[in-house]
């Protein structure tokens, strides 16, 4: 089990958290101006890297706040977590 450091509550067990997937995906401000390909890329495509991953977690069983983490998808080591 991972030990995850919530930026507000400190280190807690992974079971207190829920995973939010890739971070930094911004909803396009003017969806009407996008092509279908661009919209599909926003909706479905993910970078899914093998290595450093920039991702979202929610401290669901604690303060219930969202935060960002840099986690390695091979070693699962979390380099840093920070407030959104």
């Amino acid at each position: 089990m991972l030990l995850i450091k919530c930026p507000w509550c400190g280190e807690r067990a992974e079971t207190e958290f829920s995973y939010g997937g890739e971070a930094g995906i911004k909803r396009p401000l003017e969806p009407d101006k996008l092509t279908d390909e661009e919209w599909a890329d926003y909706l479905f495509n993910r970078s899914n890297p093998k290595g450093a991953h920039h991702e979202l977690w929610n401290h669901a069983g604690g303060c219930r706040r969202w935060f960002e983490a840099e986690r390695d998808t091979v070693t699962y080591r979390i380099a840093v977590t920070r407030e959104l």
């Binding site: 089990m1 991702e55 998808t73 091979v74 699962y76």
Partner: peptide
């Protein structure tokens, strides 16, 4: 396991 992973192992829970 909920998170992305290439580690061929998951969590105890």
């Amino acid at each position: 396991d909920a998170y992305n992973g290439y580690g061929q192992r998951g969590s105890f829970q």
